[in-house]
Every structure is written in C-alpha cells, then in structure tokens.
Amino acid sequence: MLLKNNLRIEYHILQSFPVSCLNRDDVGAPKTAIIGGVNRARVSSQAWKRQVRMAMQELGIRLGMRTKKIFEILHPILISEGANEEQAQLCADKIANLLGNDTLIFISESEARAFIDYAKKLNFNSDDFKDKELAKVAKKALTPSIDALDIALFGRMVAKATDMNVEAAASFSHAISTHKVSNEVEFFTALDDLSTTQGSAHMGSLEFNSATYYRYISLDLGQLAQSFGDIEDTAEQIKLAIEAFTKALFIALPSARQATQSAASPWEFAKVLVRTGQRIQVPFETAIKSNNEGFLSPSIQSLKDYISLKEKLSGSLFGKLGDYEWGEDETFSIDDLIKILQSHVE
C-alpha cells in the first residue's frame, strides 16, 4: 500500500480543566507561556506524549521499551543463550555503548532478540561486532506493527547508529490555554492524628490554575506506512494504529497532582482534518475573552473561524480530504470518528 508522505490526520482539540496543575515547572508551579502578549497556561508536549504512549499500552498495544538499561536487558538473555559471564558482559556492553549508555533509547523486543541472535552467530565474541552491522540488524528486525508502534509514532534517533533512526509519524504541540491565565495559590494545613495540642502539624502552599486548553496533534499516515515497511496487511495495521492513537489521545491525561486535584476532564470539542500539504496549527494569538458563559464556546468558534479562513487563503494547497467535528453532535461518538478516519486508508 502506498500513502503520500504528507497525507495526515490533524487533531485540533479543546479541553477544559478546573483547579489543576497538569504540568509543573522546576519550582512546582504550573507551566506557562507568553502568547499574544498575555500569560497562558501551558502543558509541554512531552507531558502529554508519555501519557498517550502509556494509554496505548493500557489499550493492549505492544510497545517498545524506552530505557537507559540496555545492558541490564541483554545481559541475562545472553547468559541464558549460552554466553559465559565475561562474554555476556562484553557483548551487552558493546551493544549498550552503540545505542548510548547515557541516553534514553527506544528498543523493541524484536530488536533485542536480533541483537542476541547476532551475538550468538559470532560465538559471543564482541571483538567481531561491527557497529554498522548491529544497526542494520536492529533496523531489519524492527516491526512497529507488531511490538513497537510507539517507535513509529514518536520516532527514534541514535547518534552512533543512524541506520536505526526512525522518523516520527506523530507530532505534538505544547497545549496552551486559549485565554489569559494567572496562576493562583492554595494554602493548606495538615493535622497530626496523634497530636495532643491544637493547631496544624504542617503548612504549605501550591500553585494551580484553570484553563481551556488547545491541543494540536498531527499523524502522518504516509510516514507511518513507511515505518511499517513492506508487510502484507499495511492498510489494516494503519487502521489499527489510527484507532489506538485516537483512543489514547482521548483518554490520556497528564499525571501531575492527579491524587489531590483529579484533573479528569475529557475532550470538549475536536475538529479533525484529513489533508495533505503544510501542517496548520491554530495559534490563538488573540486571547479569547469570556462571554459570561466561560471560554469554551468562544474558543470553539475561534478555532472553526481560523481554520476556515486558512482553508480559503490556502486554496488548492490546503489539500482537504476530510473535515469532521466531534463534541457538538451527540449522535457522533469517538467510535464514529475513528471509523470515518479509518475509511481514508485503503
């Protein structure tokens, strides 16, 4: 199956959260950014990306491992496959060094198995290892559709073994509030159950805010097909990836302070486009003003108006193949959205 490299699904999501601190900075305060000259609430792309990845795992998708502990993964398997202690140490260390001992790296179960088979083929003699060959062994073994969808979605860069590099099919913007936000401070006290005197045993303060966030995520279907490689059921695998990715986007929430603030608000509105051409993110450069009914309603209208204007201005370069809105029609569920997105893959 052939898909154009610039055929993508673009998710424009609005999501409102009351008292929350979705993503903390180095002093524990909610992250912010200055946009259009005013302060906005912000959630970094990494904070939401990891939760999307974990959500896919909860949905039953087999993922790769993102870790620095390559040595610890390979060493016991090498021993079990017949290497002695010295051989296992040298082989595992050589492979770990290739991938970068001090760097978080994505590696799939298939690739780990391929490394072991390569070492076994060379009688566990690490002196015979060649970096280029190791990288090619891993790239050949990579099977995103089976056990490493996250590597295909989020990409991988290995500085010492560029043959293992994988271009990310998904891109995430930082989520921003559509309106001006000022962080607030919660003062709290805690009591000691065993205290015999009045008064609190502990006092503290935490910053929080509330906001309607705009999230932009792009999924490049052509790149996803390229990363999957030459497999018989590419179309079906891409459809499964669309389902898993969309559901994960829907349910994933940043993990900060969930025990104390339970920021569990779902999507409020989403405009999802299937198109070719240049990616288009809505900047919300002019902060939304409340219409005495909150920020959501004017944010939805502003989102629609911006994309409509850019479509007219872009002409044939806009390349729209599908335009779907979720959240206002109660008969159009997330399952319906997924099915219609999957219909663009043949």
Rank of each mutant, 00 (worst) to 15 (best):
Ser110Cys: 06
Leu98Asn: 07
Glu72Asp: 10
His75Met: 02
Asn101Gly: 14
Asp93Cys: 06
Tyr118Pro: 05
Glu109Asp: 11
Lys94Asp: 12
Leu99Ile: 00
Gln89Asp: 15
Tyr118Asn: 10
Leu104Tyr: 14
Ala112Leu: 14
Glu86Ala: 10
Phe106Cys: 00
Glu72Ser: 10
Glu72His: 05
Ile95Ser: 04
Lys94Arg: 14
Gln89His: 13
Gly82Ile: 12
Asn101Leu: 14
Arg113Ile: 11
Lys120Asp: 09
Ile105Met: 10
Glu109Trp: 00
Tyr118Leu: 14
Glu85Pro: 00
Ile73Thr: 04
Ala92Gln: 06
Tyr118Met: 11
Asp117Ser: 15
Leu98Glu: 08
Ser110Ile: 02
Lys121Phe: 03
Ala83Glu: 01
His75Asp: 02
Ile73Lys: 13
Ile116Lys: 07
Ile116Val: 15
Glu72Lys: 09
Asn84Leu: 04
Phe124Asp: 04
Phe106His: 03
Leu99Gly: 02
His75Phe: 12
Ile116Asp: 11
Asn101Gln: 15
Leu104Ile: 08
Gly82Ala: 11
Ala83Met: 06
Thr103Glu: 15
Phe71Val: 05
Leu99Arg: 01
Ile77Trp: 04
Glu85Ile: 09
Ile116Thr: 13
Ile77Ala: 07
Ser108Tyr: 07
Leu104Lys: 05
Phe71Trp: 10
Glu81Thr: 09
Ile116Phe: 09
Ile105Thr: 15
Gly82Lys: 09
Asn123Gln: 13
Ile95Val: 14
Gln87Tyr: 00
Glu86Gly: 01
Glu81Arg: 12
Leu104Val: 10
Gly100Thr: 11
Ser80Met: 13
Asn101Thr: 15
Glu111Ala: 06
His75Ser: 08
Arg113Ala: 15
Gln89Ala: 13
Phe71His: 14
Asn123Thr: 03
Ala119Thr: 08
Glu81Ser: 11
Phe106Ser: 01
Ile79Arg: 14
Leu90Pro: 00
Glu109Asn: 06
Ile73Leu: 13
Leu90Lys: 12
Cys91Lys: 06
Leu90Tyr: 02
Leu104Trp: 11
Asn84Cys: 05
Leu122Phe: 08
Ala96Trp: 05
Gly100Ile: 12
Thr103Tyr: 11
Ile95Asp: 05
Glu109Gly: 04
Glu72Gln: 13
Leu99Phe: 09
Phe115Gln: 03
Ala112Gly: 10
Tyr118Phe: 12
Ala114Leu: 08
Ser108Lys: 07
Leu99His: 02
Ile116Gly: 09
Leu90Phe: 03
Asp102Glu: 15
Asp117His: 15
Ala92Met: 09
Gly100Leu: 10
Thr103Val: 14
Gln89Thr: 14
Ser80Lys: 15
Ile95Trp: 06
Lys120Asn: 10
Lys120Ile: 09
Leu104Asp: 12
Gln89Gly: 03
Ala83His: 04
Glu85Cys: 00
Leu90Cys: 04
Asp93Tyr: 14
Asp93Ile: 01
Gly82Asp: 12
Phe115Asn: 02
Pro76Ile: 02
Ser108His: 07
Asn97Gly: 14
Asp117Tyr: 14
Leu122Met: 11
Leu74Ile: 05
Thr103Asn: 13
Ala114Cys: 08
Ser80Leu: 13
Ile105Val: 15
Gly100Ala: 12
Pro76Asp: 03
Ala96Val: 04
Pro76Gln: 03
Ala119Met: 07
Ala92Lys: 06
Leu122Lys: 07
Ile73Arg: 13
Lys94Ser: 15
Leu104Arg: 01
Gly82Met: 12
Ala119Glu: 06
Phe124Ser: 04
Glu86Thr: 11
Glu72Ala: 11
